[in-house]
């Protein structure tokens, strides 16, 4: 592989693990929300209740995304130092916040404090990845 191709693959793995980890969190949260909607008597075998089915579906999607993000993360760690890559993973908190406040199924309230928090994370990620040396092992 060319050096340019290898670099592109590293960035793609990093982006995939950040996005998949955020999607995993949002899907699992949605699964738990559906479970909350179901009455206690609906949690029974065989599963006929729509909320329980939705809960299982979203939790499974969340776990699958989580597993995929773990594999992508290992591919990241092959290529970058842990001290370079780990701070970037905090971007998934920002994605979770944007997703949780905008996904119609969740629509959690955005608050000024939380928005300031996500901006701090973004500033921190920028600062942490400012100095290079990431690609050496």
């Amino acid at each position: 592989m060319t050096a340019r191709g290898a670099r592109w693959l590293g960035v793609a793995c990093l982006a995939a693990s950040i996005v998949l980890s955020a999607l995993g969190q949002l899907a699992m949260k949605n699964g738990m929300r559906h479970l909350h909607l179901a009455g206690a008597d609906e949690i029974a075998w065989p599963i006929t209740s729509a909320p329980v089915r939705a809960a299982i579906f979203w939790t499974a999607v969340g776990l699958a995304a989580y597993g995929a993000s773990l594999v992508a993360w290992l591919a990241v760690l092959v290529r970058y130092r842990l001290s370079y890559a780990y701070p970037l993973l905090a971007l998934s908190y920002v994605l979770v916040y944007v997703g949780a406040t905008h996904w119609p199924q969740l629509l959690e309230p955005a608050t000024p404090t939380r928005t300031v928090g996500t901006l701090l994370i973004l500033a921190g990620v920028a600062l942490a990845s400012l100095t290079g040396g990431g690609s050496a092992r």
């Binding site: 908190y93 928090g117 701090l120 921190g124």
Partner: peptide
């Protein structure tokens, strides 16, 4: 310094 900002941000979020 970046890590300190991230930690503070996570707490606020």
């Amino acid at each position: 310094a970046g890590v300190a900002l991230i930690a503070a941000g996570i707490t606020l979020v």
